[in-house]
Design a protein around this nucleic acid. Structure first.
Length: 457
RNA sequence: GUGGAUGUAGCUCAGCUGGUUAGAGCACUGGUUUGUGGUACCAGGGGUCGUGGGUUCGAGCCCCAUCUUCCACCCCA
């Protein structure tokens, strides 16, 4: 290998076809965002470190890419910190900026900073890349694209209903069947923790519970015991380990389980509201599924929690997620702003569509006609036709060099260009173009007008 | 951050217990066809075997380190 050209681990180059396919997904999502009344914003690729640090938990902090200060950054460092090799304190003093880790926290910062210019409730969407210093694996990258839609400034549950519809609309458009929208409510999790008398261990409790489908009932029990949750407490909530029935049966079980928890009951009420609304507004493609074990790591969720699972025949983690957060902007000083939002994981949706062969053929279409170059005089003749074609938004191009016919033809073939136009001396004399259909091999002479009709049909 | 696997031509991979000049298919370039691609036939170019050390008379193969990719965990889209 002569060159050592390479890119950092967890990042990717995208070829023309890949970009076309990504754009197909992005424009689909974007169209539905607009249809639902969301407005676009963008925020910087990097933020001040303290905007991001501490917002995603310890694990999150570890995964934030920090940007080294410019200039003689060591000069300002406390000698004691430096000599002790205290990485944590050292890094906070030499990295004042960090790459954004998700779109939600920068959005919260945006809302607080621009609160006087925003009309609430504010519905925004945002499609940008985010960065995580994670170890890459399948469907997990260090730079990836998130497509977020959030509403801030309304605690109406109709928003949750609409977001579920939005998910459904997007997956319907992408022709992706078998997606399940898993829903849960933080209040139910709080209620469960309360009922078993372990409210102070809510996080440990939910993190363990979240792993049910991965490590099984015994694994979850073991982890809960390790975290200091009592055996009798686990016994109390045992029924939720085996919830396999429909939405209503699950709700009923939760009702009896949480009859003594006010907050738990509130969570049930919210779920029922959403479910009843959706019975009147049925989903087209996706399935709504109550999953009591759904917790998600982000600790700012306070109400609904969403997670989107790829169809069961595809081996892929979640392809989207979201939820309600009552006080996200509180950390930046703006109180009483309830928000709810969802995110689409573009890169994972891409992998799922690729695996299921769901990209429409049309996304790969580029140039429709290639004009063979026979020389300067002929090229000029060709370009006159090309100019007219382009004016009608028919993509056409001239092979730049008067190369051998074979070379030009195989170039068209390799690029899957459906039509080739041969216009040499003979055609010029008769003021025609020889149009060749590359799929059928058919060839005929026609004037510019007919050429256009033929190709656009 | 923890544990495991991997790396040979542009791509997918062969390469025996360490032994001459490292192979195949596909792709690429040229020709059979100087106004006709996708098929066929012929010829050709291309690898300091991920990188750096070490063991050995001799290393693609053994040892160490490092990087990449992949898998599991953690976490997550």
């Amino acid at each position: 290998m002569a060159s050592q050209a390479s890119i950092p681990k967890g990042t990717r180059d995208f070829s023309p076809i890949e970009v076309s396919k990504r754009n197909y997904i992005i424009s689909t999502i974007q169209q539905h965002f607009k249809d639902f009344g969301f407005q676009p914003i963008e925020t910087p690729t990097f933020e001040n470190s303290d905007t991001l640090m501490g917002k995603y938990g310890d694990e999150g902090d570890r995964l934030i890419f920090k940007i080294l200060n410019s200039g003689d950054f060591l000069k300002k460092v406390d000698t004691a910190v430096y000599e002790k090799k205290d990485s944590l304190r050292l890094s906070s003093s030499i990295t004042e900026k960090a790459l954004k880790y998700d779109l939600t926290v920068p959005f919260a910062r945006y809302v607080v900073q621009h609160q006087n210019d925003i009309d609430f409730p504010f519905k925004r969407y945002q499609i940008q890349n985010v960065f995580r210093a994670d170890r890459p694996q399948k469907g997990r990258f260090r730079e990836f694209t998130q497509c977020d839609a959030d509403v801030i400034g309304s605690d109406s549950l109709w928003q949750e209903v609409e977001f579920i519809q939005l998910y459904d609309a997007v997956f319907t458009s992408l022709n992706l069947k078998g997606v399940s929208i898993k829903i849960n409510n933080r209040k139910i999790l709080s209620g469960l923790a309360e009922v078993i008398g372990e409210s102070d261990k809510l996080i440990d409790f939910t993190v363990a519970l979240d792993k049910l489908d991965k490590i099984g009932e015994e694994g979850v029990k073991k982890e809960m015991l390790e975290k200091g949750i009592s055996e009798s407490a686990i016994e109390n909530i045992k029924p939720i380990f085996n919830l396999k029935d429909d939405f209503e049966t699950k709700i009923n079980l939760l009702k009896s389980l949480l009859s003594h928890s006010k907050i738990g009951q509130k969570g049930i009420e919210e779920l029922e509201f959403i479910q009843k609304a959706l019975q009147e507004l049925p989903l087209k493609t996706a399935k709504l599924d109550l999953d009591v074990t759904l917790a998600r790591g982000l600790n700012y969720y306070t109400g609904a929690i969403f997670e989107i699972s790829a169809p069961p025949n595809v081996k892929m983690g979640s392809i989207g997620g979201g939820g309600r957060y009552d006080d996200l902007t509180g950390i930046f000083g703006l109180k009483n702003m309830s928000g709810v939002g969802i995110s689409f994981g573009l890169d994972r949706i891409y992998l799922v569509l690729e695996e299921l062969n769901l990209f429409p053929k049309t996304v790969e279409e580029t140039t429709k006609l290639l004009f063979i170059n026979f020389g300067d005089e002929e090229a000029l003749y060709a370009l006159k036709a090309i100019q007219a074609l382009r004016k009608n938004h028919i993509a056409a191009e001239l092979y730049p060099d008067a190369a051998k016919m074979k070379k030009q033809m195989s170039y068209a073939d390799k690029r899957s260009i459906p039509y080739v136009v041969l216009a040499g001396g003979r055609e010029m004399q008769n003021q025609v173009y020889n149009l060749k259909n590359m799929a059928t091999g058919e060839q005929s002479n026609c004037n510019l007008e007919k050429l256009m009709i033929h190709v656009s049909g």
